[in-house]
Nucleic acid binder design. Structure first.
Lengths: 148, 148
DNA sequence: TATTGTTATACTCTATAACTATA
DNA sequence: TATAGTTATAGAGTATAACAATA
């Protein structure tokens, strides 16, 4: 294997690892919220609603269609966890946590934090090393590496 | 916020980051294989078949039910990318890439490697730093950190 | 005319249960 | 009896297209 091929292979291995880890993290999240009787998509919306948000914004944050947010909002409303309140722009509806919603979101957040794998499996030092690498990987910045 | 609360919040932030990155990586994979006219699940099986494998093993590797592998194998066979060959244990069927299958898998692997974000966004040094952290995060080892 | 949210519908991914053929 | 694969079916998650109200 050439030098370049080795780099490709190693990078591929890291990608697989990254995806496997994220899948485990998502599995953890699923288990955690499942214990509260909540399907994952509803839980995701719930934890995003620290402040009332237009449905459009939620669709952007979750990278999904507006119509799907409508369906999730319906289900959260049925469960009494949110209400729709009208925005100043009268086309807009703000999803807002009810008292029950706030309570549940807080419980879920705490449970998720408690079994957070990054907290459980890495030392403080390791987390401090990891953070900037993840920031760079997120790719807000233009691609910068790999000039050989 | 207490010291402990800060650590929780930071770890949560890192988790979100990790998941967002993995989702972007999966999106890249989807775009790449989509350009070859292949749905993601079929592509995943294809790249796992470097060597003929019992369907059961694939189900284990992909963390899914055996019946789903049957359905994926059917679709790959329709496309002429794999064949089922009988194992020595006559209950077992080995999924095996056809010539076309090998060709497509190679093309896909190359295309995936080429747009690999880890390669594009991190330097060699950064990748060397990242690797052991991800290994530890994968959690084959027992939880080791966070004793304060 | 463009945008927000809604409705109806349909698609993709995946699991469950019951089955068969081997072991 | 336990295991490998299959079949039929059903469910969750999500998108598309057409629409109403508002900007």
């Amino acid at each position: 294997m050439s030098r370049q091929e080795e780099r490709f292979a190693e990078a591929g291995r890291l990608s697989q690892l990254l995806i496997a880890i994220a899948e485990e993290a998502k599995g953890d999240f699923m288990d955690t919220v499942g214990a509260f009787g909540l399907p994952v998509p509803l839980a995701r919306v719930l934890v995003l609603l620290s402040t009332p948000a237009p449905m459009r914004d939620l669709a952007d944050q979750m990278h999904c269609d507006r119509s799907y947010i409508t369906s999730l909002a319906d289900q959260l409303e049925e469960r009494g966890l949110i209400t729709r309140i009208p925005g100043t722009d009268r086309r807009v509806k703000l999803l807002t946590l009810t008292e029950d919603g706030v309570g549940l979101r807080d419980k879920i957040s705490a449970a998720v934090a408690e079994r957070n794998m990054i907290l459980r499996r890495l030392t403080d030092d390791e987390r401090r090393t990891l953070a900037p690498l993840l920031e760079r990987l997120r790719g807000d910045e233009p691609d910068a590496a790999c000039t050989e």
